[in-house]
Structure formats: C-alpha cells, structure tokens
Amino acid sequence: MTTDAVSGPARLPILMYHGLHVDADSRGRFDPVYSVEPDRFARQLDWIQAQGLRSMLLDEAMQQRGDRAVVISFDDGDVSNVEVALPQLLERGMKAEFFITTGFIGATGMLSADEVRELAAAGMGIGSHGCSHAFLEDLDTTALMSELDDSRCRLQALSRRPVEAIALPGGRGGERELRAAQSLGYQHLLGSVPGPNLRARGDCCLQRLAITRNLGMDDFAALVRWQGLSPRLLQARHAALSLPKRVLGNKGYERLRERLL
C-alpha cells in the first residue's frame, strides 16, 4: 500500500459546498453558514491544484482512491453553481458533482432546467438531492420511493445520462434509505457525516467534509489532508448536533436552526 502525503492511504476527501455568495444581496439563496465567498472558493481550488490533487467525478474517484483524488460536490442547485462555480472549475480544468433538488428547478435563486443541461454539457456530474428536500427517513415507503425515483428520472431526462448518485437531504438516512436507493439503481449515496472515506464500502453512505463560510485556509487544508485538530472539531460538532436532532426530530431541529440563524 502506498502512502500519499496529502490524501493518505486509500482516502477520498469529498468536499460539500452549497452556494457561493459574496453576501446576502448576491443572486441565489444565501445561507450564513454554508454560503462560501467566491474568492475563498477560488483560493481553495488553487490550493487543491497546488497540492497535486485531481478533482474527479465519483465513478473515477472511487476507482482511483488513494491516488491523489478529491471530489468536489454541491448540494441543492443554487444558481451560483452555474454562474460562479462552473466558470471557476472550467478555468482550472476541474470537475464537480452537482446534487440537485428537482423541485427547486426554476425557483427564484435556483438553477433552471437549461442551466442543469449546461452543467451536464460541461462534463460535470449530475446527481439527485431528492424532489422536495424532504428528509427521507421521515417519509413512508411510498413517498420515499417517489422522492428517489422521480428526481432521478427528471435529472436523467435533463442531463441525458444515467443518474447514479444521490446526496441525502440534510444527510439524514440509514439502512432503509440505502436499500431503497440501491433498488432503483443508485450506485453512490452521500451523507454529511464528516470523514476521510478510508475504505470503499457499498453498505454505507460516503462521508463528506462540509465547507462553511468562515473556514480558513489552514483549516481547509487540514480537513482535506484529514490531519490535525480541524477534522476532530468537525466530528465533535457533528456529534454535538446529533443529540438535538434525535431529541427534537428533524422538523423541530430545523425550526430551532432557523431561529438561531
């Protein structure tokens, strides 16, 4: 087994972005936690390239994990994905996976159908983020299958290619959701549990690294390398938030989050 100084043996860092916004007046849906400033995103891309890492789509990265691969992913389908992220990626010859909530397509601040086609035509990955962004574990079986299948079918029609990956809305889901997605042909399920994806497994969701608005470059580098204190703090934050989610339930937790923000 070879050891890579940046990504480590058999590691696959998957970065999770949402929107790219200068401030709350920017086009799109600004989030005070997850909206990354475009200039900071550019610096992060430049750092990735300077380390000799290669941004890959999921299928390629899963085959070449440990070979300096990194996956860049976006959730929801904010219009900044095509207006800001796409030009920066193309300028550097980089790729990303875009997980789109199909019920948001055409809504204010979100991607249009033509913009989804534009991402696909540019060689970017297109994946599902459900139809309505409902938390899948809260749905009955019929509604779950509809969320998974309807979103996949629409995205396949827009992108004219198979859609084989889904990012679970809110990162919420377990064995039932995994089995349901696999029964429909999904090959990759992505959650929001932070981690380095040390082993390729088909019985669990892939881990991701949430890139937030106030994340400094040193902490960004530590997350991608999965070294130092930053990864442990991210895991501790995720663990701390899991308690109110269990106590309040998904809807109660989201209401609390909105009040706090």
Rank of each mutant, 00 (worst) to 15 (best):
L12T: 13
P13M: 10
L15T: 03
V22Q: 13
D31L: 08
V33Q: 10
S35H: 00
A42R: 10
A42S: 13
L45K: 11
G52E: 05
M56R: 15
E60W: 11
A61N: 09
A69D: 00
I72V: 13
D76M: 10
E83V: 14
E83G: 06
V84T: 15
Q88C: 05
G103A: 03
F104I: 01
I105W: 02
A107C: 13
M110R: 14
M110Y: 15
L111P: 07
S112L: 08
D114A: 15
D114C: 08
A122W: 12
I126E: 04
H129D: 00
A134V: 10
E137L: 11
A143P: 02
L144I: 06
E147A: 04
S151A: 12
A157P: 06
A157Q: 11
L158C: 09
R161T: 13
P162A: 00
A167W: 02
A167T: 07
L168Y: 08
R172Q: 11
E175D: 14
R179S: 09
Q182D: 02
Q182Y: 02
L184P: 00
Q187A: 07
P194V: 07
P196N: 08
P196R: 03
N197P: 02
R201V: 02
C204N: 07
C205W: 01
R213M: 02
A221H: 01
V224E: 05
L229E: 09
H238S: 11
H238A: 13
A240W: 13
R246D: 00
R246H: 05
L248P: 03
K251T: 14
Y253T: 11
R255N: 03
L260V: 12
